[in-house]
Structure formats: structure tokens, C-alpha cells
Design a protein around this nucleic acid. Sequence first.
DNA 1: CTGAAAGCGCTAACAA
DNA 2: TTGTTAGCGCTTTCAG
Lengths: 335, 335
Amino acid sequence: MITLKELAETLGVSISTVSKALNGSSEIGGKTIARVKAAAKEYNYKPNRVALSLKNSKTKTIGVIIPNILNHFFAKVLYGIERESAKQGYTIITCLSNEIYEKERQSLDLLANGSVDGFIMSISEETQKNNESSHFQDVLDQNIPILMFDRVAESINCDKVIIDDFQAAYKATQHLLNEGRQHIVLINNIEDLSVGKLRAQGCKQAIADAAYYKNDIIELKIDKINNLETDIDTLFVTQKGIDGIIAIDNLSGVIALNTAQKYGYAIPRDLSVIGFSDDNVLPFTNPKLSTVTQNSDSIGEASVQLLVNRIETKEPLEVLTKTIDFSLNLRGTTL
Amino acid sequence: MITLKELAETLGVSISTVSKALNGSSEIGGKTIARVKAAAKEYNYKPNRVALSLKNSKTKTIGVIIPNILNHFFAKVLYGIERESAKQGYTIITCLSNEIYEKERQSLDLLANGSVDGFIMSISEETQKNNESSHFQDVLDQNIPILMFDRVAESINCDKVIIDDFQAAYKATQHLLNEGRQHIVLINNIEDLSVGKLRAQGCKQAIADAAYYKNDIIELKIDKINNLETDIDTLFVTQKGIDGIIAIDNLSGVIALNTAQKYGYAIPRDLSVIGFSDDNVLPFTNPKLSTVTQNSDSIGEASVQLLVNRIETKEPLEVLTKTIDFSLNLRGTTL
DNA sequence: CTGAAAGCGCTAACAA
DNA sequence: TTGTTAGCGCTTTCAG
């Protein structure tokens, strides 16, 4: 790692000359510029990023805090974040809260010391369950911007990127209703999350708005991921005549489909299934699962754009909430 | 973000006094220390990480370059890396090569300017296919350590963390042989990767070592991920009497299982299936897929330990290759 | 056209 | 026990 100083010495000029030459300043003579640039290339000079950060008090770095990288949705958002960040000339520091409030708080704290220019994050399950939010405000008070995506804190005044979960669930349920289904089950294992609540509400509203739907919706709440398979199995044992399933997390749909087939349901004749999954599950089902798809990489992309805009804009900006389109992909498990 | 200087001014002492006090130096009087620490807490002082990095010429940051974050194996390694890094007091900057050589090269170049103390990476498919490696050497020549995991470059002299892919495939195949299978298919869609080659060799060696195995192994090579399902389907149409499958990537096993069931095979009576997957696929199969499991998070953990050890050890260290245990998890798809 | 010097925030050798 | 100062690598104003 050669420095400006060393370059200057070998060239027999001053540090500032080298600096200006490399930045193509008009103050410096054409020959000198050429000479300096040649030497820089020869010695593979690269400006030290840390020094630049200190000098400019900006790091061109975004802190990203993800609740669970093993969840395909978050992995895909991260993918989008990374791609757009690189495009915008930012690097990302990744922290995983693993759904733990304390880890999330520590990560914010750890990086809110000049390490990053801003944060992109989705709130941990524990944080959301316990309704914690002062750690966000602390960071914002230090004038470090935060952008929240997907799981957001209502009470915090910051930029947000979400999908219209209520509407997505509403539309999906409506599709089942339009098929004439009369015994629809809502499978919900993310009751504690803001998105889970919104999706459940969307389903219920769709049912409520359908005058011709005669029964109550059956809501299967699952609180532990380990119980997913057994609880869904039990559902099919105890409830007969299920003809529609809407699964609002990204696993249950597949499991419900497989379980239904095990119990002899013909899909989609006897039963329609819609999940909230990405296309990564498609290789695992037959017929292919119909899904509500969040455009996860777009979420990441939009998050970076909004945050970078806030970082780089001098004047105070109105706080913004951007809603990303979802799509209802009807495949083989619906009529 | 209050600085040392500002703290010093409000307290009416010098900057170095504050610095020493906060670091609990024995040079400073007990009362002063207390007074300074109280003020630091009150004003929420946090040492600026960038300034520290510049001062110490070390960043306590690791650059992590992952080929594909949507691949569950890499996501889990990243999980392990993040956890162990946090434990060791390091943060990670994450770059995704998306299997592209140029992106991988750029990421190394981008961070090899004082941004990180070292790299943890797995080589992109394109890099490995074209046998590129000078970009690694360039970084090493700048005295920045690299640790490679899983997909490694033989020609590069650096620390490595791998699993014994040959042995893993050997053992898995041996299990099928011990079951008495006589028509074993090897499904390989990662032929271009070092790990793919090793696994295929392991399978073949196991077959070769089994005197009682009468037939040749049937190798199904798939070069495009899109062809996975159709190629596997075709396999079952064209080949009759398959009684063992060993799938050396992390998708094919599940697909082969599902396809076999579609064609009426009773699993594991008629056919045994072993995949190279993590337990994330288990919810999607019935019976549960038997797998060779790489302890992915241990790979991440060991990678961080080795790299940090190299970073923090003053004397030159012998280059090390660590092999992480795999486990053969027999579940419902084998006898 | 080129160079000296200050300063970003911090630590540590040296002075007082 | 406390303060002064130099320096990490860089940019930029101001002098020359």
C-alpha cells in the first residue's frame, strides 16, 4: 500500500502536487500530471479509503441490519441492496440481528460512530413484539439516517419501503373467493410481525366484503416454526372440506400443499392454495405453487436509492414511505 | 457525534487527558478519570472508528466475498461468519460476486485500499471455470491476507477451509452400495466447480472399490439450472430400474425424490436418495431426505478464526488448510 | 504552476 | 498528574 507521501518522495515533488495531479486539478501542469499518473499506475497507488472517510466525514458505507439471512426473502433483499449499493458507489456492512433485540441495538450502536453514513434495516421479531424503538430514535438523533423495509416501526419518523401487505392478502383471498371457495383457511405463523397482522387483516377484510361467502374464515395460528408441519397436518385431520388455503408466510404454503396431496386432495380441483413465497420454492412443488410475490430485490434497490438520496442531499428532506408492487402469480395450485 | 476535542473543551482539560482518562491510563488522577467518564457518558461520546482505523492502520473489518447469497449454503456460511466476527470484535463488509469474475476482481480491488484487514471468500464459478487467479495474488502481494472456503484455488498459497468433499461423496455412495443397490445414478450440475469434481470422483472411487457392484455408474450431468427438472424427469423416463441416487448439489436431491415418487417409486424400498443439502429442504420432502450435510456455519466460524489469527499474529504464520467435518444424515430416503 | 500547512479524530511519546 | 506535539493519509486553502 503505497501512500501519497511515498509517491511524492519518489517523484521528488510535494504531496499536495501529487494529490492535485491525481485529481486532475487545473492548477497543475500537464506534464506533471502525466508523470504523476504514470507513477501512480506503476506503483499501483490507491487512495486510502479510511483517510478519505476521515477527511470527508463520510464513509460511502451503508450499515445493513437483517433479522435472518437464512430467510430467503431477506437474502434476496440483501442481494438487491448489494447490487444497487455497488452501482451507487457504496459498500455495505452487514449485521444480522437473528431476530434478537439486543443484537439489533448493539449493531446500531456499534456502527453509529462514524462507521456508516446510514442504515438500512428490517426490525427483529423480538423488537417488534416488545415494541422497542428508542434505540432507533437514538441513532436518528445523532443525525444518522435510517431506512426501514418490510418490518417497520410505525412510531419512528424515517424513510420506509414496504409492500402493501394488506392489499396483497386482500387480492389473494379475493381470488379464492372468486373461484367460489367456501371453506378458506388462513395459515398464520407470523402473528407477531407487523406484516403478519396486515396480511391477516387483508384476508379477513376480503372475506367480510364477500357477501356470498357464508362461513367464517378458519384461522390457523402457529407460534413455533417447529410446529408448522404437525399443526398443518392436524388441520387436515380435524377440518374436513377445506377448499381454499392462504398461507401468509413463505413456508406454510408449500407444506400445506404437500400435506393436502398426502390426504388425497386433487389440486387445484378440490382445493386452491396461495402462498407468500418467492420462486425459490417452485422446484419443490407439483403443481407449482401460486404465490403472492414480493419483488424482494426491488425492495432492496429502492431502499438504497432512498437512503443514498437522503445521505447526499444537503437540504432536509420530507420523510418518505415507498410502496413496492407485489404480484399475484397464479400457477398450478389455483384455478 | 461529540469528539474528544469537544469533550476536552467542555471539561476544560486537554484532549490527551480525556483520551487517557477514557482509556483508564494510570497516568491520570482518579478524580479526573471519574469526571471525564461521567461527561463522556452524559454526552454519549463514542470514539470515531474511522479515526481509530487510520491511527492504528487496522480496521477491525473483514471483507467477505460470496458467490451467491441466494444459495442456502452460502447464506449459512455468512451467518457463521457474521456470528464469529461479532464475537471477535470484527465487522464484515459483504460483497456478492454473483458468480462473475469481474465483480469478484472489482470487490477485491475496491476493498484492498485499507478498507479491510483481510478477506474471506469463496471463488466465483466463472473464476474457477476460467482458472483465473492473478487477482488473488495481487491482493496477497499487498500483504492483505485472504482465506478461501469451499471453492478454493489450488494454485494460491493462502489459508483455506474446506470439507472433505471426496470423502463425503465416497461415504454417501458407499452407503448406497452397502444397501445392495446396483443401478446408481450420480446427478451432477456443478461440474465446473472444484467441489463438484471432488464429489464426483468420490462417488466413482466408491463404485470402483466395490467389487460386487456390477454396473457402471450412470452420471447425469446438467449444465444449466433451468434444465434441472426436465433432465431429471427424462432420466426416469429413459433409465429403468434406478435404485440409488446420489445428488451432489443442494437442489437435485429433492427434485429427484419428488420425481421418483411421481413415477411410482416407493422410497426407500425401490430407490434410495442421498442429497448434498442443508436441513432447510426437509420441510419440502416426505419422507425426509437423507443428506450429506456440510456444517456450513462451522465453515464460517473456522474461517473467521483462522483469518483473525493471521491478522493479529505478528510473526509470519505457516499457511493452513482446515477440513471441517461433514455428516451423513440418514433419514427417510435411505434404508 | 508548485509547495507549505492546517485539519479530519485519535493515540502516545515526550515535556512540563 | 497533565499538556504539547507529531503523525496516521488525505484534501484544500493560502503563499510563494
